[in-house]
Amino acid sequence: MHFDPEQLRVFSALMIEGSTSRASLELRTSRSNVRRIWQNLEEQLGEPLFVTRDNGDTEPTTAARRLEREMTSLLEEVRRFEASVRKIHMNGRVLRLGADRNLFNTGHFGRVFNTLRHDPRFRISFLEVGAADGKAALEAGSCDLLFSIEGVPGRRLESRELPPMSLDVACSRDRHDSSPVQPEELANLSWSLATITEKPRALDTLRHIRKSGGGEGQLCTQHHFMRWAEDTKSAEAEAMVCVRPVSFHRLSQVMFLPLGLEAGYPMNVSYLKQHPYEFLETMVGQVDRALQSPLPTPPDGLRSGQS
């Protein structure tokens, strides 16, 4: 019986990775191609090699384990070849993330970035992309994943909602209570909403806080917010409602507390449907799970905003 190298590579990848999605990632091909080669191999052998579980993982059958034993030396050669290919890909594969600069500087996007940065299969790069240029950047291949608040419509594009960015209240460090700030407390302060989105959406968020008892707040830019955080004593505002910046621990003048209100900004990720990295959907799922997991609780005596 004749086995071509592609069949051996797919069989070896499925035995090691345990799913078509992970095997396709390692082989840099599509899941449908992995499944096609796997089914062709089963047709040649006349018996099933893998069983697919409800969660998408593949379990080798007795026939697959017998085939692995009988072809040990040949599969070892294939795996050595795969290891060499992976080394080349790890040094050369880049996943390019696009986002507006204001979004990039949030702690929420920081979790996205770190989730992907710790994946050893990629080198991660960042490209600043304005809201109006998102579709063109994706279609031109300037970035692979584009993160935005408004989303990017297009027939060639796939968009998915991620967990939204919640709002925090930045206030001076003389506050000793680390519980969430309720809207009614804002009514007693002079405060501003630091916007990272288009003005209509920011105004809607401002009105929502007002209607919830937050009093009269103002809109301000991210630049104004950062200047305020560096020197709160000289500013008129006593607090800032904001999306927590990724470098919040460096802002020693302020502490960040959750806003006790269901308010925030949505977050979307978009990518080409027919992208050379056909496993992007899997990567997006990985990011989604990371954002849904709770942030670690800081030790006693260490509040948000402290280094």
Rank of each mutant, 00 (worst) to 15 (best):
H2Q: 14
P5Y: 09
Q7I: 09
A13C: 06
A13P: 04
M15T: 02
T20H: 06
R28K: 06
S30T: 14
S32L: 08
N33Q: 12
N40G: 05
N40M: 12
E43R: 15
G46K: 14
P48L: 10
F50P: 08
V51R: 14
G56H: 11
G56R: 07
G56I: 05
E70I: 08
M71I: 01
L74M: 15
L74C: 14
E76F: 11
E77Q: 15
V78Y: 02
S84A: 15
R86E: 06
M90V: 00
N91T: 03
G98D: 06
D100W: 04
L103H: 05
F104S: 03
G107K: 05
H108F: 09
H108Y: 07
V112F: 03
N114V: 04
R117F: 09
R121I: 01
F122W: 15
F126H: 12
A137R: 07
L146P: 04
L146H: 11
I149S: 09
R155K: 13
L157E: 05
L157I: 07
S159A: 13
P163N: 07
P164D: 13
S166M: 12
V169G: 00
V169K: 00
R173P: 00
R175V: 01
D177I: 02
D177H: 02
P183F: 12
L193P: 13
K211M: 13
E216M: 10
M226Q: 11
R227P: 03
W228Y: 08
K233M: 06
A237L: 07
A237N: 04
M240D: 00
V241Q: 02
R244D: 03
P245H: 06
F256I: 00
G264N: 04
Y271N: 07
Q274Y: 07
E281Y: 06
E281V: 01
V284E: 09
D288N: 12
A290L: 03
L291C: 09
S293H: 11
P294Q: 10
L295F: 09
L295T: 02
L302S: 02
